[in-house]
Write a protein that binds this DNA or RNA. Structure first.
Lengths: 347, 347
DNA sequence: TTGAAAGCGCTAACAA
DNA sequence: TTGTTAGCGCTTTCAA
């Protein structure tokens, strides 16, 4: 069944403006080879007729698409929301649409989705979020990048380690090492010497933040007691458990650096359950600055990660000129001191 | 600059399989008019060559697109996440992609976005979330629906009032009236007689839930004291204020029905701040069953809204057959009793 | 500075 | 059951 072809085509505009289709195409593409009086007439006609390009025809004829592919692990959580909002806001300002899909952390699925997006001729594909760093990672990203570049698209890594060896992969990151560093430094400056670190295994984000924790200690000439590093859980509940166990095992510490705000809430709960005063007996800091961090009790000291800005920059990288010089951007982080940290008790 | 046209086209497949392009097209479209031996040969060839249709060419030639347009107010919150995940999951199972964009509650922007999605020939456009119900609402939706229907697409309303007068608008809703009703009934059955209702003005969702509150009272032969209806705020903070003020004004009530879980957290805070025991002195129930509801203290009694299922059904409505009979689906809700409700004090 | 002509990869009458 | 023939609406050489 044919549907009403109500849409105005480029040919309609050409006819009404008394020029050829090619000229209209040139005007609309902003090629400055057309006489300005013609430009004006064509633009006026297009507006009057309410003409809108047919994106499919444009792409098919070899033109460029402006839709952005956006691949995330899952559509949950404040980090996702902020980042996605950033991408969307930037895209909206430029009249682009975004195609979103979830990988569920499955590399095969991820690969398939990248392929789908490429087949849709996405202007670029953004891959978001912490990655399991294994040997295959670099190779996978390189494969994606090549597949995309081959059709004039591009790969943009957001919040993931960049592939600096590759000239065709763009990236936006936040400085995870600095985040771990500044949080630890804050604790160290308050006088804490035994800082528990609740972290996750095998994820790029956590290991970088942990590196910051170590670096801050090294800088201050202080050793790190590896017993203080609590690895393993990526949930609030898990961390609650781990911290509770550390507490009842009599582990000695006066502060906790949770590698994410989510883990921090777990630590907070464990401490509170054990009747430990925060921050009087033990200080707690998170990293991320989730919107809820300020609402915790006590309000959480944390490190702000500019997720929305990351999204915006990623979108810019997608839509920007190919030869853009700085393909690798690192966004600054910022310590946010609230009420969950204080000097250690002066026993 | 031309890019490597590495992609295999339908013509390539036709040539390799020794048939015409149309035959390949028919096979791929699943039209059962082709000899089965041919079907097999073509499928085999397509697979061997790694052929993937070019969606742009397909759409341009009058074929049908399978990408879903998804318009939300903002990409925040558990309800959004669950609903979007549902849409995405269903779409993924069918090999569809979804285009997402945010309206920011601006009708003009919404209209423009619907137009963009139509120009992209989205298979259907899902409009999500509570709507300001004014006179223009119905007209706006009807306009969208007609614009979409004209190009073989369709409008799907999710979590919004349906346009039953229109045969070309599909909808999935959850039963808001029942939600308000069941929560109120629960409170009534516990023995509460003065139930404060924290609600929002002018939104379809809230007014329906409020209607449930009234209905439950009417059914029990109980009057509703309009002083108990606290209208105005749509945030936890605002509700905290309102409830605090009601408390200090000496308003008499033994339970609170918050029209959303978010408002419930505000009520909880106000009550706790005033030293009111929950649920011993005052019971509180929310509606929505946000993932965090169980983590509140005390764990919140609420009504589960099947957001993810709403998303799945909406996606099905997008991709399903046009002549699908039940264009209007209402999904059931369910009371979840936890620890924030109890019988009123027997003073 | 502009137009004519040739596709991009696919679908859909219409024939055969 | 299959092939032939036209396009869908746009971009882009190549000429003028």
């Amino acid at each position: 069944m044919k549907h009403t072809r109500s849409a105005i085509t480029l040919d309609d505009v050409a006819r009404h403006a008394g020029v050829s289709a090619s000229t209209v195409s040139r005007v609309l593409a902003g090629k400055n080879v057309v006489r300005s009086s013609t430009v004006l007439r064509v633009q006026e006609t297009a507006r009057r007729l309410g003409y809108v390009v047919n994106p499919h025809a444009r792409v098919l004829a070899g033109g460029t698409s402006t839709t952005i592919g956006f691949l995330v692990r899952a559509m949950f959580g404040p980090a996702f929301s902020a980042l996605a909002s950033g991408v969307e806001a930037e895209a909206a300002e430029r009249g682009s649409l975004i195609m979103i899909s979830t990988t569920r952390g499955d590399p095969d699925r991820e690969a398939e989705l990248v392929k789908m997006m490429r087949d849709q001729r996405a202007a670029a594909v953004i891959l978001v979020g912490e990655a399991h760093i294994d040997d295959a990672y670099e190779l996978r990203m390189a494969t994606y990048a090549d597949a995309l570049t081959a059709v004039g698209s591009r790969l943009v890594l957001a919040g993931r380690p960049p592939l600096t060896s590759r000239p065709n992969v763009a990236s936006v990151q936040y400085d995870n090492v600095a985040a771990g560093h500044v949080a630890t430094q804050h604790l160290l400056e308050l006088g804490h010497r035994r800082i528990l670190c609740a972290t996750v295994t095998g994820m790029s984000t956590s290991s970088e933040r942990l590196a910051g924790y170590r670096a801050a200690h090294a800088e201050a000439g202080l050793p790190v007691d590896d017993d203080l590093i609590l690895e393993g859980s990526s949930t609030a509940e898990g961390t609650e458990d781990l911290v509770s166990r550390a507490l009842s095992a009599g582990l000695n510490f006066t502060a906790v650096l949770a590698i994410t705000d989510v883990l921090a809430t777990g630590a907070l709960r464990a401490l509170r359950r054990a009747g430990v005063e925060i921050p009087d007996a033990v200080s707690v800091t998170g990293i991320d600055d989730d919107p809820t961090a300020a609402d915790l009790d006590p309000a959480l000291t944390t490190v702000r990660i500019p997720f929305e800005e990351v999204g915006r920059v990623a979108a810019k990288l997608c839509l920007g000129h190919r030869q853009s010089t700085d393909l690798h951007r690192v966004l600054p982080i910022e310590l946010v001191v609230r009420h969950s940290t204080a000097s250690p008790p002066t026993t």
